[in-house]
Amino acid sequence: MNVSDWLALQVAALLTLGIVSFLYKDNPIYKICESIFLGVSAGYWFTVLFWENMVPKLYENISQAGSRPYTEAGVPSLLYVVALILGIMMLLRLFPKLGWMSRWPLSVVVGATAGLWFITYMQSNALSQLRATLLPILDFQAMDAATGTGLSGWFNKYLGNLVILVGTSTGLCYFYFSKEHKGVFGGLARVGIYFLMVTFGASFGYTVMSRMSLLLGRIDFMISEWWPSLFSGWS
């Protein structure tokens, strides 16, 4: 390990310990690490956005519009002039008298996004989900072919589709806002929230385990890389 690698390892370890020290309480070391993190990340993202958006998407597309009228995505290159104008309008916030013009690009972003997401959400969150939920309550033809043994096999065979249908329908009842959750409808909505909570519980456990793996990765770095480096030094 050369000197620069060794120093980088020590800095990484010290920053890790500094951030973890927040578990004890807010302290000066954490504040230093936090400030370094913020400064470095803000600078990093500025550079990334400049070189991955401003240069290839804006500058290159506009400057090469004569020789290449369409981008690889099939978008007319000169369309990026509109983006340039909207970007300049956004910067007009710096001039109080013209600041009102910065609302226009914001409106374009919000309006275009709403339109685009309307279709995307309709496909992924509504139609595809409904298509996948269209199942027979009991599929007598598929029962013989049902796989699995024991409880899970029995569940798949007799209750799998029913649980999906009841869970989806009662979940929809919970998210129906035009009727108060009272009486039979309220009962259905309550069943729906039970389904949601069971799902959340499973998701919680699953995600906590994935976070544990991140923690273990960091502990492994400290034990197997940083700690030996303290004794081995550099060469």
């Binding site: 951030i19 927040f22 807010d26 954490y30 504040k31 690490c33 936090e34 993190f37 913020l38 470095v40 990340s41 803000a42 990093y44 993202w45 956005l49």
Partner: peptide, 14 residues
């Protein structure tokens, strides 16, 4: 604060 997800979290926690 910053675009970086965990940088943002560090700052918010502080």
């Amino acid at each position: 604060v910053t675009d970086e997800q965990f940088g943002y979290v560090a700052a918010v926690d502080g």
